[in-house]
Simulated assay, not measured.
Amino acid sequence: MNDTKFPISYIHGKYLLFDIEAIKYFREKYHILGILSGTLPQLPQQNIFLGLPLQLMKEEVYYLVKNGAAFIINDGNVHEEHFNSLTDNDRKAIADERQKMAIEQMLTARTKENEKKIQIMKKINKEIPLDTLEYDSTKPVNLTMVPVDTNTKGLKSDHLEASSIGLPEIERSRYLIFESLVMNGFFLNPGLRFGCDFVAYPGDALRFHSHFLVNGYNWNDEIPLLLLIGGGRLGTGVKKAWLIGGEQEQCNSAASDDNNLDRKYRQYSIEWSGFG
């Protein structure tokens, strides 16, 4: 069993994971999917085949922290503190390493370009000037494409956890149905594209088609009839069922005070018969 707590980075209102080991662990043990949101610097508008970081919903963050699997850090503050603690020699070593990586990238790109030119010369039987493969130290190196290590694994875990921040504010009705489904083996993704809170999968979303459109409610919330009809029709139309749930409160017969209530979470699925 892995007892390690992983840091979740809080950056400009978003909760992000940069550690692939944390992503694998959360997915396998806690059924947390998240949304990959990273793009390549060369292709900032790409919207498929995205990579790290993984963005988490507030409900996912709350669930992980509540179960002792993670803690939240203010990423900007932590890295600023870490950078300020570096000596001049440490900073010079980091700058030199980035310079070295930039030169290697540049020379690799030139080598590939020369290979293309050689192939073209063979076809047209004409000489084309090749790029030099020697580095001119008098010219500045472009560091734009050099990756920066944003992983917090290099920082001490106890220091990170000591500087952790509080839990995100969540809507209780949304969180309770999220928690209920995850604890029963479902995997959940955001449901915005279907106009619901979540989309639920009976197993890993890479292997299964989603089964439910999910909305959480308070037990005494009134649900308009048109919404019941529309939710059922929409779910059936996209080969899913509409799942709603709420926290039922029942007074304990042994004690009648407000602090002694037996709470049970109930769920109901709605389908449109003969439709879709």
Rank of each mutant, 00 (worst) to 15 (best):
E161K: 11
D149L: 05
L86Y: 05
E104G: 13
I94M: 04
K122L: 03
S85G: 10
N84C: 13
L160Y: 10
L155K: 10
L86D: 02
A162V: 09
V78L: 04
K116W: 12
S137E: 07
S173T: 06
K112I: 05
K123V: 12
P129Y: 04
P129N: 09
N114H: 07
K116S: 09
D158R: 07
N151A: 10
E169R: 07
T111P: 04
Y175I: 01
I177S: 01
H79M: 12
N125D: 08
D90E: 14
F178R: 00
R110I: 09
S137F: 02
S164L: 02
E113N: 10
I128Y: 07
N84H: 15
E115T: 14
E169D: 13
K153G: 13
D88W: 01
K122T: 03
I170A: 00
I177K: 01
P129S: 10
E113S: 10
I165H: 03
D96Y: 05
K139Y: 03
I128H: 12
K100T: 15
E81H: 07
T132M: 03
K153D: 11
D88I: 09
N151F: 07
D96N: 12
R110H: 06
V146F: 04
D90P: 00
K112C: 07
K123W: 10
R91C: 07
L86Q: 13
P140D: 13
L160I: 12
T152G: 10
Y135D: 14
T150D: 08
N77D: 11
H159Y: 10
Y135C: 04
K92Y: 01
K117H: 08
D158F: 13
L107A: 13
F83M: 09
N77M: 09
R172M: 02
A162D: 11
R172F: 01
